[in-house]
Design a protein around this nucleic acid. Structure first.
Length: 568
RNA sequence: CAGGGUGUAGCUCAGUUUGGUAGAGCAUUCGCUUUGGAAGCGAAAGGUCAAAGGUUCGAGUCCUUUUACCCUGACCA
């Protein structure tokens, strides 16, 4: 490819609305353009990188026995109703009606479609199967952001395993785990597998692959000592036990004028420190008003509450709902004596006594509360958000919270879809057995953006060779006949050796061409200029280090081919 | 969905306070001069000032409504 024929609209300045580094650089370097919020056009360079990421994913999927499909993106509502996700997916799913007014949806993922195909599996002899596709997904995200990192239309590799039993699923899951590690290794992403919430996907076990990166949206609790790592939606920590002094035989009411927060109560005469208070939250869980209680100094993690209750939707109750249910406003709420409402308690409250909380009357609190004696707890769950510095649940070293991008996620679905779609095969005894499924996702565009996010410097992008839009750029300093002859002959020979090379033959100043090559992030540059050429040499520059060396015209093709092959 | 911000040339942005002929830098095109790190000089072209309505002799600027995009949170495989 000759640069003079390429469409690479580089910009000296980034568009003002690009906040994330990858967003700014991918736009500046001419890889992407925004069409509207959450929808991007991939320009030729962007599409080249995208395809290389996809090719790596495809190779690793094929290596574990995966078979590639291409499934429809537009689906009839009926299959989503069959799985139950027509209702549970809520607003995330784009929905539309066709000319006959039939309900349709754009796929957010493809469990339903693959499950439909999988009804044709009839015998255990056909199992296991691993099916995958690399396809567009549509999600009506409430807030697309950060360029390619969170979009509403994106291509994703999603694979699905079908096994006769859970041992088979474990094997498929492990094969995917290893394949994902290889994929991220080839993408030069330091992804770490972490325990994760399965969220709305269903299933009972999942692992996320998280890449530490400021532009990310998830926090991972990590122990540097033993390697424990989990998404904060799942993470726990070891808390030092709190010894409660003996309290009164019954709850005591006391007046607390204008005290509305846990913070205020810590300094109020007769109050209590935050860890000796009960925080009372009123949540509406699938339309049911519920009390959620935690230690005063703990934060609720809503995903944990979702997982603990199996609920579809959770929101905080409004002030009016709270007042009519409890008789007080937020700031004076408590679980003591509450009847007729479900009370979900965080594990950290178990066995606690002599605690202080709201009296469900404005300006009044109660103390001497013993959880077991005074609160009718409906269920216990781990609900609190882990914070930095707390002790690792495994080894008690301090935990660290790391901001991450979710680059991949693998789930053990079990038999959920087998039951909904009546997927079963005859086993060796001739009995019908439900198929056990797993599902495994990795976003192509998101990984491309994550590589950009983690591989750049002041001059622009620094692609790993494995996904670079071109592996080598040949830059001519002057376009005189001698230079061009040398350049073209090296270019042709590199192409013959299957090196992905671009010849920057533009009639532009050298500085412009150097700057563009660096902004675009091509890993290796061969500079052909009069200085070196006089001595029958060219220059070779590595983008990452910026180091330049001279090399003979006769050796350069061998040398570059070898260097590129080693780095692939 | 809540809160905040922005919308003027391809890009980055001034101009809005105090209404009076639409601006700059970069990019583009042409000419000259240049040619190893985003060159210089000269010229040209480029606009429905997000949209609609209103006030006014006159609106980029004031008022109303709408809309788009960005940020924080909520939400989210």
């Amino acid at each position: 490819m000759r640069w003079s024929n390429l469409f690479v609209p580089t910009l000296r300045e980034a568009p003002g609305d690009a906040e994330a580094v990858s967003h700014a650089l991918l736009v500046r370097a001419g890889f992407i353009r925004q069409l509207h919020a959450g929808h991007y056009s991939l320009l030729p360079l962007g599409w080249r990188v995208h395809n290389k990421v996809a090719a790596i994913v495809r190779e690793e999927m094929d290596a574990l026995g995966g078979q590639e499909f291409l499934l429809p993106t537009m689906h009839p509502a009926s299959i989503w109703k069959k799985s139950g996700r027509w209702d549970t997916m809520g607003e995330i799913m784009f929905r539309l009606n066709d000319r006959r007014d039939n309900e349709m949806a754009l796929g957010i993922t493809h469990e339903e479609i693959f499950s439909t195909v999988a009804t044709e599996l009839t015998s255990y002899k056909e199992l296991p199967q691993i099916w995958y596709q690399i396809q567009l997904k549509f999600r009506d995200e409430a807030r697309p952001k950060s360029g390619l990192l969170r979009v509403r239309e994106f291509s994703m590799k999603d694979s699905y395993s079908f096994d006769i039993d859970s041992a088979g699923l474990d094997k498929a899951f492990e094969a995917h785990r290893e394949a994902y590690i290889r994929i991220f290794d080839r993408l030069k992403l330091s992804a770490m597998p972490v325990e994760a919430s399965s969220g709305a996907m269903g299933g009972n076990s999942s692992v996320e692959f998280m890449v530490p990166c400021d532009a990310g949206e998830d926090d991972v609790a990590r122990c540097d000592s033993c390697g424990y790592s989990a998404n904060v939606e799942k993470a726990t920590s070891a808390l030092p036990a709190i010894e409660d002094k003996p309290g009164p035989d019954q709850v005591e009411r006391f007046a607390t004028p204008d005290i509305r927060t846990i913070e205020q109560l810590t300094t109020f005469e007769g109050g209590a420190e935050a860890s000796r208070q009960i925080k009372t939250l009123v949540m509406v869980i699938d339309d049911e008003l519920t009390l959620v209680i935690l230690r005063g100094d703990h934060q609720l993690n809503e995903q944990k509450l979702l997982d603990a209750t199996g609920a579809v939707a959770i929101r905080q109750a409004g002030a009016d709902e709270i007042l009519s249910a409890l008789g007080a406003r937020p700031g004076s709420l408590g679980p003591v004596g509450v009847e007729g409402l479900k009370i979900i308690a965080d594990e950290a409250l178990r066995g606690r006594s002599n605690m202080t909380t709201g009296a469900n009357e404005d300006d009044w609190h109660v103390r001497g509360v013993s959880i077991e004696r005074d609160v009718t707890v409906s269920s216990w769950a781990d609900l609190r958000q882990v914070t930095s510095g707390e002790q690792c649940p495994l080894c008690e070293a301090p935990l660290r919270l790391v901001r991450c991008v979710e680059a991949g996620h693998i789930f053990k679905l079990g038999t959920t879809y087998a039951e909904k779609f009546d997927l079963s095969v005859a086993n060796a005894e001739g009995a019908q057995t439900p198929i056990v499924m797993g599902s495994y996702g990795i976003g192509i565009g998101r990984n491309m953006a994550t590589v950009a996010e983690t591989h750049n410097d002041d001059n622009g992008l620094v692609w790993p060779v494995s996904v670079a839009p071109f592996e080598v750029v040949i830059t001519t300093v002057k376009n005189d006949e001698t230079s061009m002859n040398a350049a073209v002959s090296i270019y042709e020979e590199l192409k013959r050796r299957r090196v992905d090379v671009v010849l920057d033959d533009r009639n532009a100043r050298a500085g412009v061409k150097f700057a563009d090559a660096e902004l675009v992030g091509i890993p290796y540059r061969i500079t052909i200029g009069p200085r070196a050429l006089k001595e029958n040499e060219v220059e070779f520059t590595e983008r990452r280090s910026g180091e330049t060396s001279r090399i003979g015209v006769d050796q350069v093709v061998d040398f570059v081919t070898g260097t590129v092959n080693d780095a692939r």
